[in-house]
Amino acid sequence: MFGNLAARPWVRWLTFAARQIIGFVLIVAGAIKLPWPEASVLAVRAYQLLPFDLTRPVGYALPVIEVVVGLLLVLGLFTRLAGWLGALTMVAFIIGISWVWAHGISIDCGCFGGGGETENGIAQYPWEIARDVGLLACGVWAGLFPRSPLALDNWLFASGQPPEPADDDELEESRA
């Protein structure tokens, strides 16, 4: 669909930048929470969004998912899939923050550790959502235009020939 666009150098470099940004943020956010899964469970519970029994699996899995997806993006491995997964987590966070905002629940989003109820959490929501929308855009961009320089994908999906513009379609097929 975007075959012509994807071949442009600036698009590829933009993908490179996008995956570094969202990837780095995901790694940091996940790594902070990783050693303290119970705190992560509490942060999830504070949203009062998920059914109680789901909060523990989500609280445990989320930091791991963040770190893994972040690493994939920074390394440029399975960029298309990782880009969409990163975008998906951002959508989930945006929904979560919108939910607590709409319900007037004042919490620390727990985005980078912490979490739970706080005094003036609501004031932070617009900025948090703006940040997540920006990261969402990075993820979507990487999902749409997964080819980029300095990516392990270039080795993984190498066809054994010097890359040509026509490669893009083949590349997309192989990952579909």
Binding site: P37, E38, Y60, V64, I65
Partner: peptide, 23 residues
């Protein structure tokens, strides 16, 4: 692709179990 994909999945599973164990 399959080998690398399997490695990534293995890392995820190991990560989840390590987290549970540590906690």
């Amino acid at each position: 692709v399959i080998i690398v994909g399997a490695i990534v999945l293995a890392v995820v599973v190991a990560g989840v179990f390590a987290t549970i164990f540590i906690s």
